[in-house]
Design a protein around this nucleic acid. Structure first.
Lengths: 239, 239
DNA sequence: CGTGCCCTTGAGTACAATCAACGTTCGTGG
DNA sequence: CCACGAACGTTGATTGTACTCAAGGGCACG
């Protein structure tokens, strides 16, 4: 069930059998979440974290006049709210962008896990720091990249992250988001997302249609995005 | 020397004498850093973290055509790069925005500290999650706030963070940044920062001049920024 | 076969960028 | 002590990217 999560962890560091068992043992419950549901609202007091097994989730904040900013997209294998272990209440909401399957891990279990297995403590701390690195990259996109460069950067990032957990097929991957949701990641209106996607298509760089991303010119896409995957820390941890 | 750091920690949770001593004992060196110096470049392998005692630092990334994005401002009492403890190499650079005094804490000392004192492990993990929360708030600014609202949000945030470590005098605080650096936080050009600051001034909300921020109409500033300090987690940790 | 959601396209607007010039302050050296 | 230069701040004129408003089209689902 949580194979993708283990794959994700193993992409960065080793995991021995005892550690793997400990992680498996810390799941207390599995749940389904309907597409579009905000299952975690800013400010709620939390006593467990949510491991995303299948589907896409988004962390977001709403502003008064209808503005919404998505601060990170979660893919299968990610903890959507591991940071709630130390924060207790989140500063943002989390929604299921598509139908999702999740595993529930109580904070008490994370406490036990990290106490008993120092390497897991490190790995999970690392994991929240990786979320922060993704936020920083998105700050660069939001502040300094043009609309097409931002789109290119987003699709490059998801290509890498989904690839890590086996959810790409070469240059293609499923991404069931609306153009409005993409705009909420990039600080753009849906209309402008639409026009910019057309430009990416017309330039022969990539196609995003019917919930599928297809990268046609990967080097070109990387160039326009100035995409450097270092911030995803896909190399294994130095000892 | 590291009083402000202790103050900052104590704003969120208790600290007993043993913990305090352990933290004090983990500093191996004090250094001065010249204003404007990039003392930590993206990609370097790190074996210590840097505690900011005095002055302002910025995490930033440069893009090809002269664009720069600052992803977070650090104030005295902050660890500027605690996340390097788990990341080893950073995805961004860090510069001294003003002359700074810092304390060096080796990763081995952090390792020992967190091993011996579970509450400190929690607190420092929390601390990096707080950085992530600040990144998220800046994503909202960069993606969805107007220029004046973004400026207002930035100055509100710094007012709170500096207040926590005793660096405000009522509605006033020292902030020795250029308008260009402020623009690099907000994704704006220096020219537009200048005009927007004038508008804030003319509306009687705040003044930023000669390295000093003075908030004239705090409720008004909070309103225009839609500033909600929850993301700074200034309430004490729930047990 | 309608209804709603999403995508697409067009026309006009606005916020912020760019280009350019000038002012101010401050440190440095003649 | 004054002249000079560099960095920063200010303002004006113009351009451009992205937003707003609006309408129509495709598709899935009840």
């Amino acid at each position: 069930m949580i194979e993708r999560h283990l794959t994700r962890l193993r992409a960065r560091d080793d995991l021995d059998a005892a550690e793997e068992q400990a992680i498996r043992g810390s799941v207390t419950e599995y749940r389904q979440i309907l597409a579009g549901k905000t299952f975690l609202r800013a400010g709620e007091l939390l006593e467990h974290s949510t491991l995303l097994l299948d589907g896409f989730m988004g962390r977001y904040r709403d502003l008064s006049q209808g503005g919404r900013q998505i601060s990170e997209i979660h893919v299968p294998g990610d903890f959507a709210d591991l940071h709630s272990f130390t924060l207790k209440r989140l500063d943002h909401s989390i929604m299921a962008l598509t139908a999702c399957r999740v595993a529930i891990v109580p904070h008490s279990a994370i406490q036990a896990l990290t106490q008993a297995h120092p390497r897991l403590a490190r790995l999970y701390w690392f994991s929240t720091n990786l979320d922060a690195a993704i936020h920083r990259e998105w700050e660069v996109t939001l502040g300094r990249r043009s609309a097409i460069a931002g789109l290119a950067a987003l699709f490059c990032e998801l290509h890498v992250r989904l690839g890590l957990v086996g959810l790409t097929e070469g240059p293609r991957y499923r991404l069931p988001l609306t153009q409005e949701e993409v705009g909420d990641c990039l600080g753009l209106t849906p209309v402008h997302v639409n026009r910019s996607l057309r430009e990416l298509r017309e330039r022969g760089l990539m196609i995003f249609r019917k919930d599928v991303v297809e990268i046609l010119d990967h080097p070109g896409l990387i160039r326009i995005a100035e995409f450097d995957p270092n911030y995803l820390y896909i190399e294994r941890m130095p000892r």
